[in-house]
């Protein structure tokens, strides 16, 4: 395993004292704890001293996007106060990061709480989506992962457009040992999840989902991965319904995998 790092020991030195706090997000906490465990395994392997605030809940995205602004206020306020002292905040969900970057400024302005707004402005540069944290903060694209499977990457809309993740995901994936990456056609087209959209406009959402699945199945990949479990819940739920054989997996879990298997932390 050591041999895998031989070309990149510089970063080991650089990040030796890196500290970060993990905001796991409400739905990952409840539905996808394995993603959180993978983030812990991955970042600790890379030498990050990880912290987890036990009273964290939700960023307010669901409320804000559904039109419940007053409710979103309270969650935004809670989150900004909770994390004002962290060195870095890592969030393995691109839509929750987008919520903070795109919607918090206007929400906090509307609240009219000047000190809170200043706290947020100070916090925002320290907020990272997982792939941003790896590449921009840790300066690493080879995380020493091993995942001998056919994989296709689904770009979540928030990752693609709001965060403009660019080639970060593909840089990380292409350095994974054993992986066979298969490009997904129409990668910039939404899978149809859209939060409450998937329930309020269930039939339209399902039609969009069907189009996305068709592209996914054409890759003949074993796994469809993304940086957002919300899309994956949507895609994976339909794959299971259709007994499609293809599975979904958060990219953190691929990056956390190593040759000596699932070493549970």
């Amino acid at each position: 395993m050591e041999a895998q790092y031989s070309d990149s020991d510089r970063w080991l030195y650089c990040i030796a004292v890196m500290r970060a706090s993990l905001f796991i997000t409400c739905y990952n906490d409840t539905l996808f704890p394995e993603t959180g465990r993978a983030v812990v395994r991955l970042l600790e392997r890379l030498g990050v001293e990880l912290d987890f605030h036990p009273r964290q809940t939700c960023c307010g995205q669901m409320h804000a996007n559904t039109g419940f602004r007053a409710e979103a206020f309270s969650q935004a306020r809670r989150l900004v106060r909770m994390y004002q002292d962290v060195d870095a905040l890592v969030i393995p969900s691109s839509s929750c990061v987008a919520m903070m970057r795109d919607q918090y400024p206007a929400l906090l302005d509307e609240l009219g709480d000047e000190p809170l707004r200043r706290q947020f402005d100070a916090l925002l540069p320290r907020v990272y989506e997982l792939s941003e944290f790896l590449i921009d903060r840790l300066g690493v694209d080879d995380v020493g992962a091993y995942f001998p499977h056919r994989v296709t990457y689904h770009a979540s809309c928030h990752g693609l457009r709001s965060l403009a993740l660019g080639n970060r995901p593909s840089r990380l994936l292409s350095k994974v040992r054993g992986i066979q990456l298969i490009p997904l056609a129409n990668i910039d087209r939404c899978c149809g999840f859209g939060g409450t959209f998937s329930v309020k406009n269930s039939e339209v959402s399902s039609a969009m989902l069907a189009a996305k699945l068709q592209d996914a199945f054409e890759t003949q990949a074993e796994y469809c991965t993304a940086l957002d479990n919300s899309c994956l819940m949507h895609l994976g739920g339909a794959m299971h319904r259709q007994c499609a054989g293809m599975k979904t997996i958060h990219m953190a879990e691929i990056l956390a995998s190593t040759q000596d298997g699932e070493a549970q932390a």
């Binding site: 796991i24 704890p33 993603t35 319904r241």
Partner: peptide
């Protein structure tokens, strides 16, 4: 059009 995975035994926290 979609299944939902049953809730895991243990949350992340």
């Amino acid at each position: 059009s979609r299944d939902l995975r049953g809730l895991p035994r243990q949350t992340f926290h």
